[in-house]
Design a protein around this nucleic acid. Structure first.
Length: 965
RNA sequence: GCCGAAGUGGCGGAAUGGCAGACGCGCCGGACUCAAAAUCCGGUCCCCGCAAGGGGGUGUGGGUUCGAGUCCCACCUUCGGUACCA
């Protein structure tokens, strides 16, 4: 009977922990150091827990349990990111209220997570859809609404660095003199503001779609037409924090890859804005004089095209301009002759989603407007085109095209026969490498026609062909030429230096039901006003119809709740809701003080717990969630509501868990095997084989069991025909592939401890790795061996094995124990769980081979095992005679002297090649080691008759003879 | 295309610049058993050899070093992210 029986043990200890509140954490414990270890909370989907979830959760749980035993006060909470589209779509289909679905899913997730035995403090559980939670999400939104960004505000950060730019209360915003409408001015400066933004409106579905849901201008569901139309939406001014989001990455301990991604996403670039006068009559000279005499206009005047460029040094090479099709000046500049073509092009562009315009479009398209503008550097007229390779959302939505030195402009100019004027001289090596074959004098032919080269020269170089009566760039390097051009432009009010970001302001509203309502009222002129804090939360109105609008225009479902919308005679409620990101942007703060009804969190508790010391989650959140959270946190910091500049001090990304490795062979229509080497996946699904230049023939994949394939050379082949290559690959788990592992089933078969242990034993936490049920069995067997090492498996009751005796440790045993403690401790500190487990396995392999197992060794082992397999460890601890949980037992210690051996075996090399091994005293000097090595028969033979030029001795490590001949 | 990560036995993986393959899976052999399962013991990178022993080996090609899986350069492959960002 008392074989290792995880199901019995695990429920027993889960109940024990729950009933005694073993892991409830006190807020402020002055004599203990604090540690805040956080998991990314899950979206409770209807599919239930996935084996990917427990990977990160197990890792953090191990650390928490380990750190508690080392005397830390550990905050380790869990909650639910529960707003979101699936519950709403389910509601539309079935009429079930999203709250019901969400609650059901949460209950499932909670049950599954609890079955894994994690040491969360469940009294701190939060749910983003709970009005007591979203009350504070709304409250934080009001802070954003109440804040403007002062880019010139000087302050000093916690590291003592001088900083510029800070969010300040809107009441402190200086109103410019003579401002006709101070309220409108304030509204235009808030971090939360309203703007017209195009959305993908699908009239047939009556709903607004995300970019991913639009394919080829049609809806993914139902294939209905989708149009882009402007809609008034809430935006968050994250771009104001672009520099700080980049700079403060220096303060955190995150993987370099994630920091790089964030930097790229923000995409800061330095360049210049330049104004090109629209050429209507011959008025350029007059305009220049007027410009010189007045300040730089912040608002773009109606008669100029303002462009952004990172290469102002190439302005003399700007031979045409391109506007985005949506650019407001298109109408004004288009000539009557070109009107029809321009309108048609714009109509086509409007039918394409952003993805279509970028992803699929390989060749450049565009239309001339018929209009011209004037190049401010040389006064030459340049034609103005529209093309969808210029995006309205970046820079100013207009570019100066320098085809000689920009790959996209080069391609466009060649397509439409526009002039290409070189203004940066390429290096000789570039010319030699890129000149078309047979070019006698590459430089001469480049200067004559850069278009004859296959690509543009986009690197830095020496300027030429760049002079006007006031400015000479010729001979200057690119950085010098940029500086000179910017200086000249600024002096003549034709341009100025600017910084630009790829990052756009954050579109923060959704036309959905299942999200946080905005705490905002709109007056008759649609001016926003904050709901009074005393009226928070603004609850979602009860509705039983979640269907999209039938009004024929994009309208959020909340618009149908008439009583709710009509706040008073003067005001209506905002009917958009917040995106799913909102609740997850600040949840780590609410865990600190989850029940506080007066404040989002208590400032003293915030100072105690923040920052989060370790944050673990999937890399798919590397950019958006982490960037958005950091942005909110910085606003809260600027407003004095949190004490740290960054929320997450250390970040670790767990890798993805793939399905079991699959072997796939291919058969043609006659059922003949086709080698995977000649099979290609076709776009839009299906596979074809292609032999040499032959016809592509359709083939179908066939899944093979492991014993039908064999390794040959680089890959796998069929056992019965080794000429047939077989694909061997693990795939992402997905319902459609049928390779999803359900954690409930693993727990039922092997227990939670085995699941936990296996997920940690698979490999490094950060790595992507394939699942293997055989691997689960392996760790299950290990736990069984650990059980039998301590428990008498032949007795009727669970009792201590007679081999476990209260005897002192002999020298060897003491060494094994000390080494295991040292190794496991070190591995846990470094989050190397896989090697920590292998050290425990080695320990068991040693002691199961012994007839007498000292009790002290067994106790140390049990404590070392407990963070990873807590249920089994608690049971063993009890069998070893203890009444209380081991969760707060001190972590085992050891005598460091035991790690040092008196004698060590070291390798002997001759010219770096291993020739033998010798046993030397650990304290032996270099000369002694050399003498022992020379005395060794094999070594003596290996160096006999050769000149020993040098002897390298690493005491306790190795000896290497460098010989000649 | 750009950015990032990774390439080590049949498989997952281990190795502060110092004995490559710890630990686990799988496989082979043995013990226990009437038999099987479970369990226990031994073996298992490749090649030559009965053995002792010898030789080769960490994606490819160079380099640094007494010594390279590890550091540097170039390339190849796979995975992840991103995508006309002016």
């Amino acid at each position: 009977m008392p074989a290792y029986h995880p199901q019995r043990i695990e429920t027993k200890w889960q109940q024990y922990w729950e009933s005694r509140q073993t892991f409830r954490v006190a807020d402020l414990v002055p004599d203990k150091p604090k540690l805040y270890i956080l998991d990314m909370f899950p979206y409770p989907s209807g599919a239930g827990l996935h084996v990917g979830h427990p990977e990160g959760y197990t890792a953090t749980d191990i650390l928490c349990r380990y750190k508690r035993m080392r005397g830390y006060n550990v905050l380790h909470p869990m909650g639910w990111d529960a707003f979101g589209l699936p519950a709403e779509q389910y509601a539309i289909q079935t009429g079930t209220h999203p709250r019901i679905t969400t609650q059901k899913n949460i209950d499932t997730f909670r049950r599954q997570i609890k079955a894994l035995g994690f040491s969360y403090d469940w009294s701190r559980e939060i749910d983003t859809t709970d009005p007591d939670y979203y009350k504070w999400t709304q409250w934080i939104f009001l802070q954003l609404f109440d804040t403007w960004y002062d880019p010139s505000f000087k302050w000093t950060d916690a590291e003592g660095r001088p900083r510029t730019g800070k969010g300040r209360p809107i009441a402190e915003l200086p109103i410019p003199e003579g401002c006709a409408d101070p309220d409108a001015y304030r509204d235009s400066k808030r971090l939360a503001y309203r703007a017209e933004v195009p959305v993908n409106w699908c009239p047939a579905l009556g709903t607004v779609l995300a970019n991913e849901e639009v394919i080829d201008g049609k809806s993914e569901r139902g294939n209905h037409p989708v149009v882009r139309m402007p809609l008034k939406q809430w935006m968050l001014r994250i771009t104001a924090y672009g520099d700080r989001l980049i700079e403060d990455l220096e303060l955190v301990d995150w993987p370099r890859a994630i920091k790089d991604m964030q930097r790229n996403w923000v995409g800061r670039s330095e360049g210049a804005e330049v104004d090109f006068k629209i050429k209507i009559e011959h008025d350029f000279d007059n305009w220049r004089q007027a410009r010189q005499a007045s300040p730089w206009p912040e608002e773009i005047p109606g008669d100029v095209i303002r462009v952004y460029t990172t290469r102002p040094d190439t302005l003399f090479g700007a031979t045409y301009m391109v506007l985005a099709p949506e650019h407001p000046l298109v109408d004004r500049i288009t000539t009557p002759e070109q009107r029809a073509a321009v309108d048609e092009y714009r109509r086509q562009a409007a039918g394409k989603s952003d993805l279509d315009r970028t992803d699929l479009a390989k060749t450049k398209t565009g239309v001339w407007t018929g209009g011209f503008a004037v190049n401010p550097a040389n006064g030459e007229p340049v034609p103005v085109w529209i093309a969808d390779y210029v995006l309205m959302g970046y820079g100013t939505g207009a570019i100066m095209a320098v085809p000689a030195h920009d790959e996209r402009d080069f391609e466009f100019a060649k397509t439409f026969g526009l002039p290409i004027r070189p203004v940066v001289s390429p290096t000789d090596s570039w010319l030699a490498a890129h000149a078309p074959e047979g070019t006698a004098d590459p430089r001469a032919s480049y200067d004559r026609d850069p278009g004859s080269f296959p690509e543009a020269f986009c690197e830095e170089g020496i300027a030429y062909n760049s002079r006007n009566p006031e400015l000479v760039l010729d001979g200057k390097s690119t950085p010098d030429a940029k500086a000179a051009m910017i200086k000249w432009l600024a002096a003549n009010r034709l341009g100025r230096k600017t910084v630009n970001y790829k990052l756009r302001d954050w579109l923060f509203s959704r036309q959905r039901y299942w999200g946080e309502p905005f705490p905002i009222l709109l007056d008759r002129e649609e001016r926003p006003r904050a709901v009074d804090v005393s009226e928070l939360p603004v609850r979602l109105p009860e509705m039983d119809d979640f269907k999209p609008s039938s009004s024929g225009k994009p309208e959020p479902p909340l618009a149908k709740a008439a009583d709710w919308v009509n706040y008073s005679d003067a005001y209506v409620r905002e009917t958009n809701t917040m995106p799913q990101w909102a609740g997850s942007c600040w949840y780590y703060l609410r865990y600190i003080d989850p029940k506080n009804s007066e404040h989002p969190w208590d400032p003293e508790k915030e100072r105690y717990w923040m920052p989060v010391d370790l944050y673990v989650g999937g890399a798919e959140h590397a950019v958006l969630h982490l960037l958005y959270s950091r942005f909110w946190h910085k606003v809260l910091f600027d407003r004095g509501l949190v004490s740290t500049a960054e929320p997450f001090q250390r970040l670790v990304n767990q890798g993805m868990i793939l399905g079991e490795t699959e072997y796939t062979a291919y058969q043609d229509e006659q059922g003949r095997w086709v080698s995977a080497a000649i099979v290609q996946e076709r776009e839009g699904g299906g596979f074809v084989s292609r032999e040499g230049r032959g016809e592509a023939r359709p083939v179908s994949p066939v899944k093979l069991p492991e014993d039908r394939v064999v390794k040959k050379g680089e890959g796998f082949v069929l056992v019965e025909d080794e000429a047939i290559r077989v694909d061997a690959r693990a795939h992402k788990m997905s319902k459609s592939r049928g390779n999803v592992i359900n954690p409930d089933e693993v727990i039922a078969d092997y227990g939670a401890d085995s699941l936990r242990l296996y997920e940690m034993f698979m490999g490094p936490l950060e790595a992507t790795k394939p699942w293997s049920m055989k691997g689960v069995e392996g760790v299950y067997r290990f736990l069984g061996r650990a059980w039998r090492m301590i428990v008498d498996d032949r007795a009727d009751e669970v009792t201590l094995s007679p081999q476990v005796q209260d005897v002192p440790l002999d020298a060897d045993a003491a060494k094994v124990v000390a080494r295991t403690i040292a190794g496991v401790t070190d591995d846990l500190e470094g989050m190397r769980f896989n090697t920590a487990i292998s050290k425990l396995m080695e320990f068991v392999n040693v002691f199961t081979g012994r007839d007498v197992r000292p009790k002290a060794a067994m106790e140390a082992f049990t404590l070392l095992l407990s963070p990873m397999a807590p249920h089994l460890a608690e049971e063993l601890w009890q069998v070893l005679g203890h009444d209380e949980t081991l969760a707060y037992e001190p972590w085992p210690s050891y005598d460091p002297a035991l790690l040092v051996d008196a004698e060590v075996e070291i390798p002997v090399q001759v010219n770096g090649k291993l020739k033998g091994r010798i046993l030397v005293p650990a304290e032996a000097t270099e000369a002694e080691v050399e003498a022992i090595a020379r005395a060794d028969e094999k070594i003596a033979a290996a160096i006999e008759g050769k000149e020993v030029r040098k002897v390298i001795v690493r005491p306790g490590k190795l000896i290497n003879f460098v010989v000649a001949g």
